[in-house]
């Protein structure tokens, strides 16, 4: 079903050529995409330079537990909540982005390999993806992290590996279609090497699907990391992650609900921004939608 859709969209790419011009212009036209894009840029800035803007040394950070000291109050250990939110955003985003990069590189590589080599290679890679997809992701992640040990690097690896098939599938479907296109035959006749065909013809054609898939996976990866940390399997104290902050906020629901509310709203806002941005990107990059307007 998804394969068919992917195939259909490739055909249109072939007919109309790559749609790279005006992407930014069309992206900016939509106010929702604009707002979430701006928010996402703020998040990226927080990740990159947050601790510089709101610097708090370890000694200063400790105040009276569960008080309103600082901008957003302090947590049960008397730590400044805003400072911890900044670190938590950083932890969550770095883990999620790391996982998506692993999934993207491995998935695109395997997808191209399966699509171009065909035969046994393709059967093994694609059936392997199917098998990985028939495990429920969160449960397999919990089991894998339990076996490897609760540690953020393991979380990155596990989420990364679990998301490889998502990329493999879309890239495979497209590269199979492109492999048999006449312009690829023409390049072969001209003596272009397979490596060059893949990097110069196939990759640009596959890129828009990969970007959309990456934005979808990023939203899932943020949620899975937060979920694992919530269960105590991801970031280990004293390191802050949005999941661990929500988990500790749960213990003070009646005394200090803000301890739960701030990290929850921030997590929802980040996931929402990534999703809206992803929707916007898909509208712009998916040729069928772009040309329907």
């Amino acid at each position: 079903m998804a394969d068919n859709l992917a195939l259909a969209s490739t055909e249109i790419v072939e007919k109309t050529g790559p749609v790279s011009r005006g992407i930014v212009r069309r992206l900016v036209k939509n106010p929702r995409t604009c707002i979430s894009g701006a928010f996402f840029i703020i998040i990226v800035l927080v990740v990159l330079i947050g601790p510089l803007i709101y610097p708090i040394t370890y000694r200063e950070q400790v105040g009276i537990p569960l008080s309103q000291d600082g901008l957003l109050g302090t947590d049960d250990f008397g730590r400044d909540v805003l400072a911890r939110l900044i670190i938590a955003t950083r932890t969550s985003m770095l883990v999620a982005v790391g996982a998506v990069i692993i999934a993207l590189l491995a998935g695109v590589g395997l997808g191209l390999l399966a699509g171009f080599l065909g035969g046994w290679t393709s059967t093994i890679i694609m059936r392997g993806s199917d098998i990985l997809l028939s495990f429920p992701a969160v449960i397999l992640a919990i089991a894998a992290v339990a076996i490897l040990g609760p540690d953020l690097i393991n979380v990155v690896l596990v989420i990364g590996v679990l998301y490889v098939p998502r990329f493999t599938r879309v890239v495979y479907a497209q590269s199979v279609a492109i492999r048999s296109a006449q312009y690829v035959d023409a390049e072969r006749v001209n003596g272009t090497s397979t490596a060059s065909i893949i990097s110069r013809t196939v990759l640009p054609n596959v890129m828009s699907t990969v970007i959309v898939q990456a934005s979808l996976s990023l939203s899932f990866a943020i949620q899975v990391e937060a979920g694992l940390s919530f269960l105590g399997l991801g970031a280990q104290p004293p390191l802050a992650s949005l999941g661990t902050m929500i988990s500790s906020g749960r213990d003070f629901l009646e005394v200090q609900p803000t301890m739960l509310i701030y990290p929850s709203l921030l997590l929802i806002a980040i996931v929402l921004a990534v999703n809206v941005l992803g929707d916007g990107l898909r509208d712009v990059l998916d040729p069928r939608r772009a040309f329907a307007r």
Partner: peptide, 15 residues
Amino acid sequence: SVLGISLPVFVTGTL
């Protein structure tokens, strides 16, 4: 619905 798909399930639960 965009808000709905952006709600991590454990956040909805705790809230």
